[in-house]
Simulated assay, not measured.
Amino acid sequence: MTLFLTALGLMLVIEGFLYGGIPSFAKRMAEMLLQTPDDVLRKAGLASAIIGLCLIWMARGL
């Protein structure tokens, strides 16, 4: 549970910096997401989830 809360907190910090620090960039990225086909978003999302799981697995093994 500690690892989950740490990861959630880190995600919120990164998003907070993005929206608080450079909101115009966040808006441009949101517009690009709306124009990106679903299959591309699905593949990118699955790839990043797999990479994230691998990173967690490696970090927990060290």
Rank of each mutant, 00 (worst) to 15 (best):
L8K: 07
F4S: 03
P37M: 01
A44C: 13
I56Y: 06
A59K: 00
L53D: 03
I50D: 04
L18E: 00
R42S: 08
L53V: 14
L33D: 14
T2R: 04
L53G: 15
M32G: 14
G16T: 05
I50P: 08
R28Y: 08
D39M: 11
C54T: 02
K43D: 08
Y19H: 13
V13N: 07
L10F: 13
M11R: 05
G9D: 03
I22G: 00
L12C: 04
D38Q: 14
L34S: 12
S24G: 08
A44H: 09
E31H: 12
G20F: 03
L34T: 09
L55I: 04
F4P: 06
S24C: 00
M29D: 08
K43A: 14
L5S: 08
C54Y: 02
G21H: 05
T36F: 11
T6C: 07
T36R: 10
L53N: 03
M32H: 13
V13Y: 02
A26N: 07
Q35Y: 13
L10R: 13
A47C: 07
G21I: 03
G21Y: 00
Q35H: 15
M1G: 05
D38M: 13
A26D: 06
E31T: 06
E31N: 11
E31C: 03
A49H: 07
M58S: 03
L53Q: 03
A7C: 07
T2D: 06
E31S: 09
G16E: 05
M32L: 15
L41C: 09
E31Y: 12
L3E: 10
C54H: 00
G16S: 04
V40N: 12
G45K: 01
L3H: 05
K27T: 14
F25N: 06
L10Q: 12
G16M: 04
A30D: 15
C54I: 11
G16P: 10
G20Q: 10
L46D: 08
A7N: 12
F17P: 00
L10Y: 08
T36Q: 11
G21P: 06
P37E: 07
A26E: 03
I56K: 01
A30G: 05
E31P: 00
G61L: 01
F25Q: 11
F4D: 05
D38R: 15
D39V: 12
A26F: 02
S24Y: 07
L33Q: 13
G21L: 10
L8A: 12
L55A: 12
F4C: 02
E15M: 02
G52I: 00
L41V: 08
I14H: 05
M1K: 08
C54W: 08
F25D: 05
P37Q: 02
A26Y: 00
G9K: 01
A30K: 10
T2P: 05
Y19G: 02
I14N: 01
E31F: 07
S48G: 01
A44P: 04
P37C: 06
F17G: 05
K27D: 15
F4I: 07
T2K: 04
A26R: 04
M29F: 12
Q35A: 15
A7I: 15
V40T: 15
M32Q: 15
L3P: 10
